[in-house]
């Protein structure tokens, strides 16, 4: 058995650590070692975005990051979006706009959309569509997802 490596990192603000095989991806570590099951695997090759997380604020596909690379970093997942029992506006708008059918793409899209709105609180529809182009949704045709994000962005701008 390959020697396993000890990794200390932060997930949604909580300090955690795990032992990982150097071949394991961050996605594997989050799911299999830390039980962070909101991060989904749709492809394992960086093409679907279901595994989207932030790593020190940068949006990444966790299936393309090695588990050992998380050492000392801050990881953000869908589990960290709500503030206690208060949902993030994006989460609320996704439910209200019926922006999910099966919901398997939803965690990744929420993480990606939140990251965009932190950089650009007022994206155009085209900017949003290109930002989300790495997040596949097979169920919705994206229409309601785009509407939900635009609506959440508008609400967040008003609130700030």
């Amino acid at each position: 058995m390959t020697k396993r490596i000890h990794v200390s990192t932060t997930v949604n603000g909580d300090e955690v650590d795990y032992l990982c095989d150097p071949r394991e991806t961050l996605l594997d570590c989050l799911r299999d070692h830390l039980g962070v099951m909101g991060v989904k695997e749709g492809c394992g090759t960086g093409d679907c975005g279901a595994c989207s997380v932030t790593l020190d604020g940068r949006l990444v596909c966790s299936c393309l990051v090695l588990g050992v690379e998380a050492e000392g970093k801050e990881i953000g997942t869908v589990e960290g979006m709500a503030d206690g029992e208060v949902l993030h506006p994006l989460q609320r708008k996704f439910i209200e706009h019926a922006a999910l059918q099966c919901g398997i793409c939803t965690p990744g899209i929420l993480v990606a959309a939140k990251n965009l709105l932190e950089r650009n609180p007022d994206p155009t529809e085209t900017e949003l569509r290109y930002w989300l182009a790495g997040n596949l949704c097979r169920c919705t045709g994206y229409d309601k997802i785009i509407r939900a994000v635009m609506d959440a962005a508008a609400e967040m701008r008003e609130a700030s």
Partner: peptide, 16 residues
């Protein structure tokens, strides 16, 4: 792979 089996992405489509 999804890169080569290319399903529509958000930037491929308009509102429907």
């Amino acid at each position: 792979v999804f890169l080569d089996y290319r399903v529509p992405v958000a930037s491929d489509l308009p509102m429907i």
